[in-house]
C-alpha cells in the first residue's frame, strides 16, 4: 500500500496537480466562499430592496440581530422565534420519519431482489429526484380539500376530509418532506446492510435469534456509522429545505413558516435584505455546528476502525 502511494506521487507533479485545482478554487471561492463572507457584512446594515435604504444602506451594528432576539415578541406569528420553533418540529418530525422509514424499507428488502424491490425502490427514489416544482404541483392536487386524492380515499373509508394545507400546514409539509427525502436513508442503509457479511447473520440464526434480536444485536451496531451520517445530513438538509414553499408559501398565517421560507420572505417578499442576511448568518451558524458535529463523528469513526 505504502509502495503504491509513493509511486503515485510520480504520476503527477505537485505543480501540475495544483494547476488542475485552480478552476475549482475559483468557482468555489467566488460562488460559495465569497457569498458566505458577504452575507455577514450585509447583516450589519439596514439594506433593503425598496425604499430609501435600497440606495443608501446604513450601518446598524448589531441592530438586526437584537431585533431578531427581541424576546418580548419573537414568538409571534411571522417572527424569528416562531419560525425557529416550527423548524425544530419540522426537522425532528422529518428526521424520525425519513430515517425510520428508510431503515425499514432497507431492512425489509435486505438480500432480496426482484420486481417488488425494483418497484418500491423506483417509487421512493423518484420522489426524491423529480423536479421540485412538478412535485409541488402534484402534491397541491393530492392534498386539495375539495377534490384531492387523499380526501377522496379517506372519503371511501367514510372519513371526512379536511383542507390539509390550511388546517394542518406543518404536519402536511412534514409528511411531504418525509415522502420527498426517505430515499436517501433507504439507499444509504441498503448499501450498509448489504455490506454485512452473511456469516454474521448465520451465526445468529444458529443461536436462534429472532429477527428483532438479529437486527438489534448484530445489524444495528454494524450500520451505526451510516446511522450517524443519515441523522446529521438529513438534519442539515431538512433545516435548509425550501421546497415546502411551493405547497404552502409559508402560510396560512405563517403556520408553515419554516426557517428557509422565513429567510426568503424577509429578504425577497418584505425586501429586508439586512435583516434577511442576519437570519441567514444565524442559519449558517447552526448549519456549521451541525456540519462540525458530523466531522467530529467521522473522525471518531476513523479512530474506532
Amino acid at each position: 500500500m505504502d509502495d503504491l502511494t509513493k509511486r503515485g506521487n510520480h504520476i503527477l507533479s505537485v505543480r501540475a496537480g495544483v494547476a488542475l485545482l485552480v478552476p475549482a478554487f475559483v468557482f468555489i471561492g467566488l460562488f460559495l466562499f465569497f457569498p458566505f463572507i458577504w452575507v455577514f457584512l450585509i447583516s450589519f446594515t439596514n439594506r433593503t430592496l425598496l425604499g430609501a435604504a435600497a440606495q443608501d444602506p446604513e450601518f446598524v451594528g448589531l441592530g438586526n440581530y437584537l431585533r431578531l432576539f427581541d424576546f418580548s415578541r419573537w414568538m409571534r406569528s411571522g417572527e424569528f422565534g416562531h419560525s425557529l420553533y416550527l423548524t425544530v418540529i419540522f426537522v425532528i418530525g422529518s428526521l424520525i420519519g425519513q430515517v425510520t422509514l428508510g431503515l425499514a424499507i432497507a431492512f425489509a428488502f435486505n438480500r432480496r431482489r426482484g420486481k417488488l424491490r425494483e418497484i418500491i425502490y423506483t417509487l421512493v427514489t423518484l420522489a426524491w429526484i423529480l423536479p421540485e416544482t412538478a412535485i409541488g404541483f402534484t402534491w397541491t392536487a393530492f392534498l386539495d380539500g375539495r377534490r384531492g386524492t387523499l380526501n377522496a380515499i379517506l372519503g371511501a373509508f367514510g372519513i371526512e376530509g379536511v383542507e390539509w394545507l390550511l388546517e394542518f400546514p406543518l404536519l402536511s409539509i412534514t409528511v411531504f418532506n418525509i415522502w420527498r427525502g426517505t430515499a436517501f436513508s433507504m439507499l444509504l442503509f441498503s448499501a450498509a446492510l448489504g455490506n454485512i457479511r452473511p456469516s454474521y447473520l448465520e451465526t445468529a440464526d444458529v443461536a436462534g435469534a429472532g429477527p428483532w434480536q438479529r437486527f438489534r444485536d448484530i445489524m444495528f451496531p454494524l450500520i451505526s456509522p451510516q446511522f450517524v451520517t443519515a441523522l446529521v445530513l438529513v438534519t442539515l438538509w431538512t433545516f435548509n429545505v425550501f421546497t415546502p414553499f411551493l405547497l404552502t408559501g409559508g402560510g396560512p398565517a405563517f403556520g408553515s413558516d419554516i426557517i428557509a421560507i422565513h429567510t426568503y420572505r424577509v429578504a425577497f417578499q418584505f425586501f429586508e435584505f439586512g435583516r434577511g442576511s442576519a437570519i441567514a448568518v444565524i442559519v449558517m451558524t447552526i448549519n456549521l455546528i451541525l456540519a462540525a458535529s458530523y466531522l467530529f463523528g467521522l473522525k471518531r469513526k476513523e479512530v474506532a476502525t
Binding site: L32, V39, T263, F273, S277, V283, L288
Partner: peptide
Amino acid sequence: FSSVVTGSAAMVP
C-alpha cells in the same frame, strides 16, 4: 461547507 452555504440563506449575497 457547500451544505452550509445553501438555499434561501445564500440568495441575498
